[in-house]
């Protein structure tokens, strides 16, 4: 099973709220498979957006930080701050687009 970049509890909650908006009154068991797909798809988009906000040089610098096995949250927070990468803004944009597409019925519906 592939792990997610974003916390799975949050992804699951997001999926539940999305589905409740469009299909109110449904128990979790009625959409268990699709819930996982929503989580995977959203995590996929967020991952691409975050990585896509980095230039190659920034990617190398982040890679070095990761290779050092840093356990310091502040180090990672400082890295993104240094390059003015606003993670919350990036993720919110992705979530908003995802929600809009979902409520409208999907790009290929």
């Amino acid at each position: 099973m592939e792990s997610h970049l974003v916390d799975e509890t949050l992804l699951g909650q997001f999926a539940d709220v999305l589905i409740a908006q469009k299909y109110p009154g449904q128990p979790k068991e009625a959409y268990a498979d699709a819930r996982k797909d929503i989580m995977d798809a959203l995590d996929n988009k967020i991952s691409r957006a975050i990585i896509g906000s980095l230039t190659e040089e920034q990617g190398m610098e982040l890679n070095q930080l990761l290779d050092e096995g840093s356990t310091d949250e502040a180090a990672f927070a400082d890295f993104f701050k240094k390059y003015n990468i606003n993670l919350e803004e990036i993720i919110q944009k992705v979530m908003q687009e995802f929600q809009d597409d979902f409520l409208k019925g999907g790009k290929n519906a």
């Binding site: 068991e29 009625a30 798809a41 990617g59 979902f102 019925g105 999907g106 790009k107």
Partner: peptide
Amino acid sequence: RIDDKVHKDIGKDDNTGRVNPEYN
């Protein structure tokens, strides 16, 4: 079950497997 309906709402774009990210 409403899995099928929800799958359509997600759209095909993200159901075809992980797409590798790219740098800016």
